[in-house]
């Protein structure tokens, strides 16, 4: 639970203080946000399954965001940035959908 509390506090702090992102990081932001959504949906599903774990959540969140950003960075260097972004979005999108479906089944039994 401590990870969730930390995340919420971090979100609130970010909303209050409006820190700005360095310009060179901007290309990776959309993918990072999608990766974060994937980690969040996974965490929610694990919570409903009774398997939630702080450490796994934080590690998967961090690694998701970093790996997604790194793939886009690599793609940019190779000149296939937009294609790789699409690949990452597709994979993460499918995962978000499947997790959302599992959450829905668990919540509504349908």
């Amino acid at each position: 639970m401590i990870a969730v509390i930390g995340l919420v506090v971090g979100v609130v702090a970010g909303l209050i203080f409006h820190p700005s992102v360095p310009a060179e990081l901007t290309p990776y932001l959309p993918i990072a946000v999608v990766a974060a959504l994937d980690a969040l949906s996974g965490a929610l599903r694990a919570l409903l399954d009774g398997q939630f774990d702080d450490k796994v959540f934080v590690v998967s969140f961090l690694s998701n965001v970093l790996v997604a950003a790194f793939i886009v960075f690599l793609g940019d260097q190779l000149g296939v940035g937009s294609q790789l972004s699409t690949a990452v979005v597709v994979v993460l999108g499918i995962r978000i959908f499947s997790n959302a479906a599992a959450i829905r089944r668990r919540l509504f039994k349908a």
Binding site: G6, V11, A13, G14, V21, V33, F61
Partner: peptide, 12 residues
């Protein structure tokens, strides 16, 4: 780490 991630995501 969770705190930092929260801030980072809001920034993004």
């Amino acid at each position: 780490i969770a705190l930092a991630l929260g801030i980072a995501i809001v920034m993004a």
